[in-house]
Nucleic acid binder design. Structure first.
Length: 294
DNA sequence: CACTTGACCTGTCCGC
DNA sequence: TGCGGACAGGTCAAGT
């Protein structure tokens, strides 16, 4: 679902599609997901121009000329889909996976003065939208506890090791998924990077060799970059700002491949539950540690 | 305090 | 066909 590569892909798409546009209308009926809409939309959104797009962890920000910023989290089933006045049909390279919009899972519709629209769809309503003064965005509790961006040059192998060390008694997958440790990693890329580094997801951090953790650091970054290049992973709901699938799952080695043969050793990919999530491993390439029993 | 589990939602799939 | 239940998995709150 939307993890760092998916949100980055949406950000890049929207950067091409909506910068410079002026918001002319916003319709919403979702007090829980967008609580300050009713009071602030009229004052700070209508007439605002889109200045830029940013991403931090799995959250997306749309900076506006009113010095307000829309902060959006897609959680598991959120989509941000742009529609121009032109709709492309079947077979066209710009054909969207998403049909007529708005649809029954549309929670917020942003209309622009050129009669194009940005739809925030969220089947399960776990996502959220906030409108805040740009200077106050990072005060949100969500950002306050977020760990570093794994793809920044400034995030080093040593940073990674130090942050993992603080959680040495936890299972490695639970730690990778913890947004306070590293921002942006979710279930898909945790499974894929642990497979690439040949670490069983239940292994306690303290039981993984430092050299292997360094390999995990390299593999995690390599996989996140590759996933961005492929436009992210479309498992069920995720689509780009253009409404298109991401193709990373074609390249995935274990995620959603239970029952298939491991590309490396030929043994079967297994699915289990680790840290409360569906977890995919090769039992040969990622031997279960004997030291920690569950 | 560190860590794990359940709640939040809706849609789909599977077994009976 | 209909129906109940498991499952999907990001984050926060509550529980151990």
């Amino acid at each position: 679902m939307p993890e760092l590569p998916e949100v980055e892909t949406v950000k890049r798409g929207l950067t091409e599609l909506i910068i410079g546009k002026t918001i002319s209308n916003v319709s919403f009926d979702w007090p829980k997901g967008f609580p300050n809409a009713a009071s602030d939309v009229e004052r700070f959104l209508i007439g605002a121009r889109v200045m830029g797009l940013r991403r931090r962890g799995k959250a997306l920000m749309i900076d506006l000329s009113t010095n307000y910023t829309l902060v959006i989290h897609l959680k598991m089933t959120g989509q941000l889909v742009f529609r121009g006045s032109q709709v492309f049909g079947a077979g066209h390279p710009n054909e969207s996976l998403i049909g007529e919009l708005p649809d029954k899972s549309t929670r917020v519709t942003f209309s622009f003065s050129d009669d194009s629209h940005l739809y925030f769809n969220d089947q399960r309503k776990f996502g959220w939208v906030r409108l805040l003064p740009t200077g106050e965005v990072m005060n949100l509790p969500f950002f306050q506890k977020l760990g570093p961006e794994p793809l920044l040059d400034s995030f080093s192998s040593n940073n990674f090791l130090e942050r993992l060390e603080r959680r040495k008694n936890s299972g490695i997958k639970a730690v990778l998924l913890d947004q306070a440790v590293i921002a942006g990693v979710g279930n898909i890329y945790a499974d894929e990077s642990l497979f690439a580094a040949k670490i069983h997801p239940e292994t306690l951090v303290k039981d993984v060799d430092t050299d292997r953790l360094k390999i995990l650091f390299e593999e995690l970054r390599r996989i996140l970059l590759l996933a961005i290049e492929k436009g992210g992973s479309t498992d069920r709901n995720y689509v780009s700002a253009e409404g298109k699938r991401g193709s990373y799952l074609t390249f995935a080695k274990v995620f959603r491949r239970e029952g298939e043969a491991c590309e490396v050793c030929g043994n079967e990919i297994m699915k289990s539950r680790v840290a409360g999530r569906g977890t995919h491993t090769c039992s040969t390439c990622q031997p279960k540690p004997r030291s920690n029993r569950k």
